[in-house]
Design a protein around this nucleic acid. Structure first.
Length: 265
DNA sequence: ATGGTTGATCCTCAA
């Protein structure tokens, strides 16, 4: 099976690209973030015509998470217990869980944080702590489980194009990196890094960041031990940042399952 | 060519 995650930055602006990519890439389940729409606005038919069912969670023009899959989704859950609210606007559409053929997946859009002294930064850290608290319990199920999405954290210095540029900014701060590391300490593994030690997943639209390859690695797939042990490959589809109307993020893909296992002795 | 973003509830906010 092939699983992927992609912050599509508006599904309505990019449905052609996303559906074309799904079919071309032979993906079974795609976790999507930043759909930027409510269910009534989602182009469900375009996915269904391509053989994919969609489950999505969207409340307004911001955030929005979902799954497109060739496998039926079971036990679909919006948000997680204890997920913090954002001020008066309440719960945001940043997490959707679903099970596909026994594999539990989460599509996650971690709050951006904006600046270190911004209330969104505290919200981001609180949100990650609440997720980790719940995810610790999910691991006890000893079921294949993966947390997939836009984490808005660059865990290593080499995950940003310039540490000088990011000095004093979000995504690289010690508290954010500690929040990410907590998932690793719980037993999750970055299942892409062993196959691809280098490579960005995001380039800002501004300042010619992509032509200059001034990007960030902030989209990750963290697998439980039961998930990680069945991963047989991974890729980052950098080409999806090219061409007409790209998202500012690119897809991150893992190949998974006993049927995909190459011969290992 | 000495510049340079995109998307949404679209002239302001979010990333």
């Amino acid at each position: 099976m092939r699983f992927a995650t992609w912050n599509v930055n508006s599904i309505r602006a990019r449905v052609d690209r996303v559906v074309d990519w799904l079919q071309r890439s032979d993906v079974d389940v795609l976790a999507m973030q930043e759909l930027k729409c409510r269910p009534s606005q989602f182009p469900f038919q375009r996915f269904e015509d391509a053989g994919y069912e969609v489950h999505m969670h969207g409340l307004n023009q911001w955030n929005g998470v979902g799954f497109a899959s060739r496998i039926p989704a079971e036990d679909v859950v919006e948000g997680f217990p204890g997920m913090p609210e954002w001020g008066a606007s309440g719960l945001e559409a940043r997490a959707l869980g679903a099970t596909f053929d026994g594999v539990r997946l989460w599509s996650l859009y971690v709050p951006n944080g904006r600046e270190l002294d911004n209330p969104h930064y505290t919200y981001k850290l609180d949100w990650l702590k609440a997720l980790a608290d719940d995810a610790a319990g999910w691991l006890a199920a000893e079921q294949p489980l993966a947390l997939m999405g836009d984490w808005n954290i660059a865990p290593r210095d080499e995950d940003v194009w310039s540490m000088d540029f990011f000095a004093g900014r979000t995504h690289v701060s010690a508290p954010e990196r500690a929040a990410f590391q907590r998932f690793i300490d719980l037993g999750f593994r970055d299942v892409v890094r062993p196959y691809l030690p280098e490579g960005y997943t995001y380039w800002d639209y501004q300042q010619l960041r992509f032509p200059r390859n001034e990007g960030m690695r902030i989209d990750f797939i963290l697998g439980s031990p039961e998930f990680a042990s069945e991963v047989t490959g991974a890729s980052i589809d950098r080409d999806e940042r090219k061409g007409e109307q790209p998202s500012d993020h690119v897809p991150v893909i893992v190949d998974w399952g006993p049927d995909d296992r190459p011969m290992v002795f």
